[in-house]
């Protein structure tokens, strides 16, 4: 038996919004310690890893490890029927083929129960190696979203260059070019830790997709090392994270 109750559906909506653009279907791996998800996009260019500890939930019970295969678009449709301040309980019996979602209004005078068909997804998990990132940048999540949006107007490719002076985002296309540089600020909303400078090129389309997680957190953490995937991490309150890994473009 798996049962988890969140006091606010808004958080679940934000999490699913952060995933559904890049993953249409995915498996939630539920265990005693919490809920995990790991999946690649269809093109195998990026990988999403989510972790939500059990103490995020008002009530959490998971008697045995369970994998719940979900169609995230269908889950979005169900979540649209709920109000953000509803409490939500998700429940599944062992070996069940359905997930139950119950929404309870804040005034507790309305309950709505939904059943969502579970999918049998054959999902492979990748081993993510421990990486000592040469550059780690923290910045406001809204600033990162704005930069990704603005650069994608110019080019499909985005170059991210990180030095001790700051982080620079560049795009160069037919209509012209753009360079946006952020330096470390004294008020601490942008911080840049650099062991060695790194410059890598990425597909802007994916960076834009990652910024769907912006409502989850004020800050985003960007980590880079030479010739390894970029890591873009959004914390989920104090209870977990969504990490997006993006393979760099390589010179032909």
């Amino acid at each position: 038996m798996f049962e988890a109750r969140l006091s606010s559906t808004a958080l679940l909506k934000k999490i699913v919004d952060a995933l559904k653009e890049i993953l249409h279907q995915s498996t939630l791996d539920c265990s005693d310690s919490g809920i995990q998800l790991q999946a690649m996009d269809n093109s195998h260019v990026s990988l999403v890893s989510m972790s939500l500890r059990s103490d995020c939930f008002e009530k959490y019970r998971c008697d045995r490890n369970l994998s719940l295969g979900l169609d995230l678009r269908s889950l979005t449709k169900v979540l649209k029927c709920a109000s953000g301040d509803d409490a939500v309980t998700i429940k599944s019996a062992d070996k069940a083929d359905k997930l139950q979602l119950s929404f309870e209004s804040a005034s507790m005078d309305r309950t709505a129960d939904y059943e969502l068909r579970l999918l049998n997804l054959d999902q492979e998990h990748l081993a993510i190696p421990e990486t000592d990132y040469a550059c780690v940048v923290h910045m406001p999540a809204t600033e990162f979203a704005r930069i990704c949006r603005d650069l994608s107007t110019f080019s499909e490719s985005v170059v991210i260059a990180c030095t001790k002076d700051g982080i620079k985002f560049s795009a160069n296309g037919e209509m012209g070019s753009v360079n946006i540089k952020l330096s470390e600020t004294s008020k601490g909303d942008v911080s840049v830790q650099v062991e060695e400078p790194v410059t890598l090129s990425f597909a802007g389309r994916y960076l834009n997709t990652f910024t769907r997680a912006t409502p989850l957190s004020e800050k985003v953490k960007i980590s880079m090392a030479p010739e390894v995937p970029l890591l873009v991490e959004y914390p989920i309150e104090d209870y977990g994270y969504i990490r997006y890994y993006l393979a760099p473009k390589v010179d032909e």
Partner: peptide
């Protein structure tokens, strides 16, 4: 000219 790398060339199957 650059081409898009695959995430599976960095992370291997468990």
């Amino acid at each position: 000219k650059s081409k898009q790398g695959s995430i599976t060339s960095f992370f291997t199957k468990k």
